[in-house]
Design a protein around this nucleic acid. Sequence first.
DNA 1: ATCTTGATTTAAGCGCGCTCAAATTGTATG
DNA 2: CATACAATTTGAGCGCGCTTAAATCAAGAT
Lengths: 225, 225
Amino acid sequence: MAHYTDPAGVNDATLHYLDVIYRLTQQGEMANTTDIAEKLGVTPSGASVMLKRLAERKLIQLVPYKGATLTPQGRRLALRTIRRHRLVELFLHRVMGFAWHEVDDHAHALETALTDALEDRMDEMLGHPTRCPHGHLIPRKDGSLPEANDVPLLSLPIGSAGVIRCVDTDNSDWLKYLGEQGLYPGVSIVLKDIAPYDGPVTIQTPEGLVAIGQNLAKLIYVEVS
Amino acid sequence: MAHYTDPAGVNDATLHYLDVIYRLTQQGEMANTTDIAEKLGVTPSGASVMLKRLAERKLIQLVPYKGATLTPQGRRLALRTIRRHRLVELFLHRVMGFAWHEVDDHAHALETALTDALEDRMDEMLGHPTRCPHGHLIPRKDGSLPEANDVPLLSLPIGSAGVIRCVDTDNSDWLKYLGEQGLYPGVSIVLKDIAPYDGPVTIQTPEGLVAIGQNLAKLIYVEVS
DNA sequence: ATCTTGATTTAAGCGCGCTCAAATTGTATG
DNA sequence: CATACAATTTGAGCGCGCTTAAATCAAGAT
Ligand SMILES: [Mn+2]
Ligand SMILES: [Mn+2]
Ligand SMILES: [Mn+2]
Ligand SMILES: [Mn+2]
């Protein structure tokens, strides 16, 4: 093991796999090899071999030809990485003045390099925050998640009022655009209209009416007020 | 090449080798294999193989059985790493409130993970600083070094007055101790006495007289006033 | 000039994470 | 039920950075 690798053998590649598997197992059941490979920019055969190694290390539970889920130990590491990613994002935004559409890339570069003390210090400086700049929940140190009442904007009846809580994408261009339209966490809105046949979604913001496509609108989660 | 490796193939290991070679070639001539290996915590045989690869990549000039020096390209990368290390140290100290004896480890973890934008933003936030918390010079983006008139404290005649500019060590314990004695960059001092036979060095600080061993005193560099 | 000794390089091999190509498996379909 | 097809795994191999053991080299002492 190289000296710059974590003593426990938990290196960057491992953490990225666990991170991806965590996200893929959030909604559905198991994470399948092809999806994991695709998210990591790797061939399915490469991912398959790596998954077997992760299973040997008891970080995932692997059912051949079926898919993978995280073990408690794997989940712990995944949540730690996600916590760090989101803390760094918020730090970059609040302390260092980066725009919300810029932080994901830099945070990705830093998330696996953070030391415990650095993580804790950022957490303190930010006042033990619960969400990243995009509104994703920041897991606590113990792996638990803060409470949230986020519902998809598009699931609400026309006329509903609420506060944007999360914009669920890492796409820099979309974030930049939505930010320019005044659509970001903390903003109070009213859902004015959803045009049929995948038509525009009209939203009342403090700055006026904006209309966006449904592909963007479905990224928005709100807390109903 | 893994996706988390720099496109140019400039990964952590490479940067650490270049960093070490830069420091070893500062004073003397060439950096020899054994010294490089020792600084990196690696066997000489391992270092030997790696050095050959670095030479193939034109990052060092290697004279077999003699030693290595950096090529202009290698020096550029080494200086970039050193710049980032020292900027991060200062950032951790000034912005994040870490003590000067704590920053080296964290900076080492972060230095190779920094993106260009992050480096630039830190530089801005810190007001384009020229020295790390220990007083080492921060190379500029173009690879040039700020001017400095640092002389070893122990090279001065008794009675000399000056300002501490650099404390040349990364040893956390020593730094903590010297900091507690009021000996750190920016402090005005007078050299009161150097006892013979490796005896104590007595220094007048704004807070009073302190006596330290010559092993510690020789780490201190001052600008004579 | 030869010998000795320490520094250095070479050789062989390992673990990691990746590739491509081939074999295998599970499943959907006729 | 048999077959076709897509997903997955296996096999062979590569580059990297490391190890230990063996060979080689440089240089000073005799
Ligand atoms: Mn992100
Ligand atoms: Mn985020
Ligand atoms: Mn340092
Ligand atoms: Mn320093």
